[in-house]
Design a binder for these strands. Structure first.
Lengths: 117, 117
DNA sequence: ATATTCGATTGACAGATGTCGGTTCAATCG
DNA sequence: CGATTGAACCGACATCTGTCAATCGAATAT
């Protein structure tokens, strides 16, 4: 696991040229790196990437019965991917009667987006 | 695996109320989803997230001997993470004598960043 | 009440992932 | 030359991940 960064003293150099200029400290700490990585990891699957894309593109909320036919996957597998996205805080769900509707949490991708740009 | 999206006809509804409004087609296709997911997956680890952050923050190039002490990880493990990042096209490397220098590929994160915002 | 439907959960499985110790290889130093 | 050093590679290991078939629970329809 990573530790919260501390620039250790270099080991001795064999040649006159130094290995490199002193490295810049990471701007993000361990905690933020883990939050960002959690979101990125949830997006790190083509199916989930497309799921989020559909949900984001849809103004309102989309029910699972609409999502499953978009993929050549079983319903439990799609449900599993939706759970991953929900665990990462990227999407939310709401049950209305027999159906479940999913939607993208508005601010879920903001931090990652900000870090990337 | 995902298929290249096609809105299948709905199954019959139990009640009068429809399940939901017709879903928006995903804007991204399978190929783009896989590219985006590949980058996101590579970023989906706290260590790699911090690695990229250090490299991005550093104007020039950083050598591995600087990166290893930042983590409580063995050198082979850091090397492994750097390889993942390189395989995803996020970073590049250059050997100069005994040392290896890593840097962030300028346009590597552009597509993901654009999709996120 | 019984059957049906939607969606989540469980159990199982192959495959990938993170980590390490040990090794290897190229380049440098003495 | 031989010894040392930085970094990548290999083999092993436990864990996690993606997928499915089967099942379950709740809500609805007949």
């Amino acid at each position: 696991m990573a530790v919260d960064l501390e620039l250790a003293p270099k080991s001795k150099r064999p040649a006159g040229e130094p290995c490199c200029e002193p490295v810049a400290y990471p701007d993000i700490g361990r905690a933020q790196a883990e939050r960002l990585a959690e979101v990125a990891k949830a997006l790190g699957d083509p199916v989930r990437m497309q799921l989020v894309d559909v949900l984001r593109r849809h103004a309102g909320k989309v029910c699972v019965c609409e999502l499953v036919p978009l993929f050549e996957l079983s319903q439990p597998t799609v449900s599993h991917h939706l759970r991953k996205l929900r665990d990462a805080g990227i999407v939310g769900s709401e049950r209305r009667g027999l159906w479940a509707y999913y939607y993208v949490e508005p601010d879920a991708l903001k931090e990652l987006s900000a870090w990337l740009s």
